[in-house]
Amino acid sequence: MKKRVVIFLSMLMAVGLLAGCGGGSTAGVTQAPGEQKTAETEVKDTTEQEKEAAPLNAVSKGDMIGVSLTSRSAERWLRDGNTLNEDLTAAGYQVDLQYADSKPEMQVQQIENMILKGCKVLIVAPVDNSALSSVLATAKENGIVVINYDLGIVGSSDIDYFVGFDNSKVGTMQAEAIIEKLGLDKGEEGPFYIELVAGSLAEANCYMYFEGAMEAFKPYMDAGKLVVKSGQTSIEQCTVVDWKLELLTARLDNLLTTYYSDGTLLDAVLSPSDYLSGPIATRLESFGYGSADMPMPVITGNDATESVCKMIATDEVYMSVFKDTRLLSGACLDIINALAEGREPEVTDVYTPDVYEIPTIFVPMESITKENLKEVVVDSGIFTEEQIFGTK
């Protein structure tokens, strides 16, 4: 039986409004250096064309695969890009790997260039989940297979497959780690003090993480056992706009000086991503946390990056959600190889980011703490023991 992951329509409307970006227009297709190709000669008009499912034999060994990822500044995406590049190349495909530096307009231009280069498949993790509808329609009308990679895209009927983690569960896993570490599930009364951090609202995943965590926290917050001392409990109050670390630092400074200068200790910080949890831990240490008198709060993460795994080993970050991105690359390759061989790809799930149902491959993920860190990320070959437990 197929599983179905649904994001409520009202949530998606909020994504569009808060991201401030529409998916309805893109720049003209960028001309590759030294070539005379134009949008008129190379790209079909998609205005009134019906969308079709990905055809079998749409790709062959030796064809170009375009990989468009969000940013090279995040350790996680560098690891994904390297794995995809290695796996696709080893399987006999050419690869055009591009990072968009967290700029939606740059990602659109890069995808347009991939279309002009003749890519047969696009693997896309969006910077802005609502900014790609036009360029993906262009890709589809040119017979290109589109695989949405891990970060959900909304507003497009031109996505053939989704490959990713069931991100609706990430926030729940993070909240449960905090609840268990504080002993709330075993009857501890608290009150324990927590502050909440959310990622960029341009990503639908951030809504899923936050909603999942808040649902798990609700009974303890309602009972007064878990308290947000700042009162900042809406995702709009907790977002780190565009993942800008200077905004995260400014908010942490304000929280600590305004609400915790009376001697109240912060017990936990909900962080949606390792990209934020490492800087959160470092900033808290600058305020004296991590000492005998001021223990480190329970800080969550997501993606199990090398830098944060080191901080888990040294008790600076409590947990992260381990996502073996090798499995994502393998799932993408399974889809591409099946199409190249004229077979229907084996998909068992359905992802519904808005009104469009997308055939999906979900791969498993795991919560990691210091207790199982070595087993999960070292023994599995992701990192070496020296990388994680050696010199920080």
Rank of each mutant, 00 (worst) to 15 (best):
A281I: 08
D379P: 05
S273A: 15
Y99H: 04
C238P: 12
L270G: 04
S286N: 10
P359D: 10
I280Y: 03
D303G: 11
A54N: 03
T282C: 06
K140G: 01
A14H: 06
G390Y: 09
P364Q: 03
A137D: 14
G20Y: 02
V95Y: 02
C309N: 11
E385N: 09
E105F: 01
D293A: 14
I388N: 05
N372C: 03
G171E: 07
M294Y: 08
A340M: 05
L12M: 13
A292Q: 14
P191I: 08
E316Y: 04
G301C: 10
M294E: 07
Q98S: 11
L201G: 02
Q232K: 13
A53N: 09
G155Q: 12
N129G: 15
T391V: 13
G263C: 09
Q232M: 11
P104R: 01
L84T: 00
R283I: 13
L201P: 01
L184M: 12
Q237E: 15
S68T: 00
E86N: 05
S261T: 11
I153T: 09
P345H: 09
S73G: 02
R326G: 09
T258Y: 01
L327Y: 07
D222S: 10
D379Y: 04
Y99T: 08
P353W: 01
I336V: 15
S286M: 09
Y149E: 10
G23N: 05
T26F: 02
S271D: 13
T264E: 13
T314D: 14
V121L: 11
E236F: 13
L69G: 03
K370T: 00
P353T: 04
L328M: 12
Y259L: 03
M11I: 15
D128F: 10
I388M: 09
L116Q: 10
D160L: 10
L136F: 08
D262H: 07
C309K: 11
S307Q: 13
I123E: 06
G143M: 10
Y99S: 00
F362N: 03
M64C: 04
I123N: 01
L270Y: 14
K103W: 00
I235G: 01
G164Q: 11
L339W: 06
Y275E: 14
C238I: 01
G278K: 14
K244F: 00
P272V: 08
M64G: 00
I358N: 04
G187T: 06
L245K: 12
K61Q: 07
S200R: 01
Y275Q: 14
G183D: 12
A268E: 12
V377Q: 05
P345I: 11
K61C: 04
E211F: 07
I194N: 02
V67E: 07
A137L: 06
V378Q: 03
Y220A: 06
M11F: 02
L255I: 07
Y259F: 15
E357T: 00
G288Q: 11
I235F: 09
G66S: 02
S329Q: 06
G278P: 06
N57Y: 15
L136S: 06
